[in-house]
Structure formats: structure tokens, C-alpha cells
Design a protein around this nucleic acid. Structure first.
Lengths: 330, 330
DNA sequence: TCCTTGTTTGCACCCGGTAGCAAATGGAGC
DNA sequence: GCTCCATTTGCTACCGGGTGCAAACAAGGA
């Protein structure tokens, strides 16, 4: 368990100065092949590799990005995390995963990440409140903030998300073609729901045809909350007076609703009630759900985000078009 | 977007030396209340907070732990990630989430984490090969390695996991009490399965009663693989010659098996075939599965791990007892 | 051969803190 | 007022590399 070798020590072994060693490890640096070979041989022998901490201090860039996640109840988050970390790593960046559960203060977490000098902070569809981001301490010399997979309603904080206006248009076009005419919408926690904009676009679309949308409210975004909202709806509305299609703000709510319809109420989907989700979370494709849903373009979203982080693209809010995934539930 | 303030600058404003500023931010340091107040006022005004990068360089401790994850197909990973990050953060540590997909070299990833001077590396039930960990470059001055939620068969690399011998004993006792007598076991990829030890203990248990266990092999650990293995089994074995209970190496395989039994083969669970999983992943509790499974003591596992990381406990391999969760599938 | 030009190499200083020692300060006891 | 001892404060050296400039060196042209 011996100490790590430093550039200085390698230099001594190779018979050069430490700066030559550093140059040997700096792509594109001015150094002869002979010197580089000498250095590399010595480095190999001493098992040397540059200390990125020291480099970060000197270059003022850690190539670390803090990724904030608060909602672990939704398996879709795992897909987002995977895509995000993969995209970051492909760019030579690494993700600092920060767990923002309800007990922790978001501002505190951001400040802490800031102290670690991360190059950026990515909010992964988290339930933070907009106001916390407006905190002056954050807007002053701190790392740039980005929001992924939901809107940022705050100027100066770019968001990369799925275009919910187009998504709802696609969904409604499909529902109309299938002849559905008594729509319902299950939304999540009020503030977060607003940030997604899905509810609003859906409602507006039907309103333009003079049809009112029944409202089901679930909170938080979890299977249990979706199930509870559906139970409440079924209890309050007799069979003849029910909606014929329910669009849910995301798949996890739809799963809860579906399980109540099928396993508790003994209703059949889509004939008694059709269900549509949003996200195309992995379980939606399984035979147990077979949920018609809207797939977010996760790959392109994280690529766009990384392009912004890397400076290849201006820091602007971007919405990308997703894709309707037709299955048996609607 | 002005530059971050440094201790030196705060010192100037407060009319003290930079070391006094640092002392004001060091708990338990020797400093008068008067000085501390002066420093704090100046720091507040300049929005100063210590640069942890510089601190890490000087103290040789980053309080960062690399967490390696390779298998994102299993939603249970999300629960493990949440528990791990929460426990680390409670200790003032932060997780560097490293995505080790099959395209990336594990050794390379560990060396990269090493360059970032992480205090430790935690392998989160990943499908790494034991040999890669034996690489000499890793065992030499690098950060300590830990394995979570699976065995480490390598001396010097401690693991914290669920006691699979006891687990299988608990499961088999339950199955015997329910009168099951024709057992099957669905294991995952061979090398990883070995690392879990579940298959072996299950087989040994029945062997001691003179009963042979039917073997179903699924690879990788995914819903689709579990489903495929079940399809193959049903195709190869006519109804009269089938097992009456299947124990799966983890829940995700059990979910696949269950979906095929119920939705494709039209069989009923547990009367035609009972199914037992392992992990108690979130979906197992849902009505769509209602899977009898074995819950790993995740909370105690991560606490134990963090105790080791913090030096409150020797770096030893530890197995903890989990708990059988009875549901309708068995 | 000498001078010019371009490339390598070495150097002082810097990134923003920490450690440990030495000097300065302050209060108690005489 | 003075000494003594305990705090408090300042300082040097250092963590391990990076930057920009100057010196050293090599190659090409006259």
C-alpha cells in the first residue's frame, strides 16, 4: 500500500523535469517522442497517473456534474439516470449523484455541490420549487443549472424536455380516431404538474372541441397514489357516468390506475376504460400493463444537454418531440 | 457572474489573515468569538464558502465515494442507489455514480475514479469479473474497494450482503410447510449466479432431502430473460411433469416468469405453479405480481458499509439476515 | 560557418486551501 | 508593573499539478 507517485517523482526517475512529465500526459503538448517515451516508461514503472484533483484546482474545471434526483419511487428515473450518466461519461464527465429527498434542503445541496466546484448542476425532473432556484446565492458565481425532463419556468435556467404540446396533440389525435369522447386526466402534485404542462395542453385541446376533461388528482407520483386516485374516482362515479379514457401524467400513475381497474374493480381495459401513460417506462411494455404511452426522446434529450454543458450549443431551453407508443390499453 | 471569493479576499475585508478565516470555518478551531463574527460577516457579504477541492488536495481526502453500477435493467437497483446515496450523504460523503455498461472496461473505470482520488469504491452488485479486481494496478495505493449486495470471492475486498444460506433456509422451510415438493430454480448468468450463492444453497437444501431441483437458466438479469426461460421450460415439459414451485434468483426474473405463466400460458399462480423471488423489488408488492419474495436488509447493509468506510468498523465481509415476505404467489 | 526560426525544456508563480510551529496577545497571580 | 501561561494569530511550507515566459536546443537557409 505505497503512496501514489507524483509527477515530480516520475520526473526524477525519467531524468527530466516534472513539467516534461506533465507534458507527456497532456494531449497536444509540445514534447519530443524520445522524452515522451522515457516519461511513459518511468510512469508505467511507478504506476503513475495524474491527480485529477490537483488538475481541477489549477484548471478550475472538475469535469464533474452534479445530478440531483429526489424521486426514487418511479422506475423511469433509473432509465433517465442511466442515459444521463452514459452521456456524461462519453464526454469525459462524471456524475455526482445527489439524493434530494424531502428531508434535505435543495439550496443546501446545491451550495454543497458548488463547494465541490462541479462544472454544472442538472436537476433530473425533480420536485424542487422554482423559488429555491431563484436564491441569490445560487445565481452568483455558482455552477450553471440545467433542468432535464421538465420545464424550467425561471429565466436563465435552461431546460431540455419533451414537447408536451405536441405530445398531447399526438395523443388526442389518436384518441379521437379511436372514438373516445369522455376524457379524464390524472395529474400529479399540483406544482410539479404545472411544470410539466401536460395537463394544461390536454385540457386546452378538448376545450377547443367544447369537451370538459374530468380531473383526477394523485400525489405524489407513485403507483399507490395513482391507485388511490382511481379508487376515489370509481367510488364517486357510477359505471354509466364514467370517462371512457384516462390519460395520466406519467406511467407510474397509469400503472396504479390500471391495477385498480383490472385487479380491484374487475373492469377491462380498454373497453370499460382506456388508459394512456407518459414516459414509456420499462414496465409499460410488459404484458401485465401493455400500456399505450408517449415515449420521451431520452437519448436526444441527454445528448442535447451534454452539448450545452460542453459549450457546443447555447444554453437555451429546448423541447424535443417524442413518440406515441401504441399498445393495447388505448 | 463574478468570481468566487477566496479565504484571502474575505480576510482582507474582515481585516484579519486568511488563516483566521479558515479557522472560522473549521469546527473546533482556536478562534475568539469576536474574530469569528467579523469573518462570518465578511464571508456572508462576499458569499464565500470554502473550496472543497483545495481542501481535498491538502487533506488527501475527498469525501467522495465512487459507486459502480452496471445493471440498469433491474428497478431494484434504484432502491439500492437511493439507500446508498442517502447513507453516504448522512455521513457527509457524496456518491460519484459510475455507469459501467458492458462497453466500458471496469479496470479503466476504477483507475479513472482513482485519479479523482475518491476515498473508496463501492461495487453495487455489478457483474464485474473477480479477476479484474485482482489487477495489480488496483491493489496498489488505490482506494479501498467494497462490494455491496453480492459476494466478493476475493480476499481483501470486503462485501456486505444478505445471508443467502439463511435466506434459502427460510424460503425452503416455508415451501415445505406449504407442501411443495417439486422445486425448480431459475438462475441468472452463470458467473454472477455463483457470486450470489443462492442457487447453491437452494440446491443443497433439497439435496439433503433427496430431491433434485429443476434448473432454469436466464441471462441476463432482466424481465425478458426470465420470461424466455419460463417459455422454454413450459415448452419442454408437459403439464403433468412440471415443477410445482419455482424460486428465482431475483425478483426481476420472477416477474418475467410470472407474466409468462399468467398472461401467455394461462396458468394460475400459485395453484399451477408457485413462484418465489428475491429482493422485494417495489413492483413485487403490486397486485399485478403479488410476489412472495425475500427482502434484503438494505438499510442495515448500507449502514454497515458506511460504518466500514468511516472506519467505525473493520473492513470485513459481513452477511446480514433478511426477511421472507409472504404474498399470494407462494 | 553564422544567423534565423521553430521546437523543447526548465522555471517562477499560481490554484485555494491545510498543518504545525512561532510570535503576539491577554488575563491571572504576585 | 511584571512574570507566567494559555490562547489566539500569523507565517512558512506544502498538497500535485497548470500557465506563460525565457532559455536551450535543433534544423534550415544564406
Amino acid at each position: 500500500m505505497k503512496k501514489r507517485a507524483t509527477a515530480q517523482e516520475v520526473a526524477q526517475l525519467a531524468g527530466v523535469s516534472k513539467w516534461t512529465v506533465i507534458r507527456a500526459f497532456t494531449p497536444g503538448a509540445s514534447i519530443t517522442e524520445v522524452s515522451r517515451a522515457k516519461v511513459m516508461a518511468a510512469a508505467e514503472q511507478m504506476n503513475y497517473r495524474p491527480n485529477l484533483l490537483a488538475r481541477s484546482l489549477a484548471t478550475r474545471s472538475t469535469r464533474q456534474v452534479a445530478v440531483f434526483v429526489d424521486d426514487f419511487a418511479n422506475p423511469y428515473k433509473l432509465q433517465l439516470i442511466e442515459a444521463t450518466t452514459a452521456a456524461l461519461q462519453a464526454e469525459g464527465l462524471v456524475a455526482l449523484l445527489v439524493n434530494i429527498n424531502e428531508h434535505l434542503d435543495h439550496v443546501h445541496a446545491i451550495l454543497n455541490a458548488d463547494q465541490r466546484q462541479v462544472d454544472a448542476v442538472v436537476l433530473l425532473g425533480t420536485s424542487f420549487r422554482e423559488e429555491t432556484l431563484a436564491d441569490s446565492r445560487l445565481r452568483d458565481g455558482g455552477p450553471p443549472l440545467f433542468v432535464l425532463a421538465r420545464d424550467s419556468q425561471l429565466a436563465g435556467i435552461p431546460a431540455v424536455s419533451c414537447d408536451s404540446a405536441v405530445a398531447m396533440e399526438d395523443i388526442c389525435r389518436h384518441l379521437a380516431a379511436r372514438g373516445f369522447g369522455r376524457p379524464g386526466f390524472m395529474s400529479g402534485p399540483r406544482t410539479l404538474s404545472t411544470a410539466l404542462g401536460r395537463h394544461r395542453h390536454f385540457r386546452d385541446h378538448w376545450a377547443s372541441r367544447g369537451i370538459e376533461v374530468a380531473e383526477l388528482q394523485a400525489s405524489p407520483y407513485s403507483h399507490a397514489a395513482g391507485a388511490a386516485a382511481m379508487r376515489a374516482y370509481l367510488a364517486a362515479n357510477p359505471p354509466g357516468a364514467r370517462i371512457d379514457v384516462l390519460v395520466c401524467e406519467n406511467d407510474i400513475l397509469a400503472h396504479g390506475a390500471l391495477d385498480v381497474l383490472r385487479h380491484e374493480a374487475g373492469l377491462s381495459v380498454p373497453s370499460d376504460m382506456a388508459v394512456v401513460g407518459f414516459d414509456d417506462a420499462a414496465p409499460s411494455a410488459l404484458p401485465g400493463y401493455d400500456l399505450t404511452t408517449y415515449r420521451q426522446p431520452v437519448g436526444r434529450m441527454v445528448e442535447t444537454l451534454v452539448d450545452m454543458l460542453s459549450g457546443r450549443r447555447p444554453h437555451d431551453t429546448i423541447v424535443l418531440r417524442g413518440e406515441l407508443v401504441l399498445r393495447s390499453s388505448a
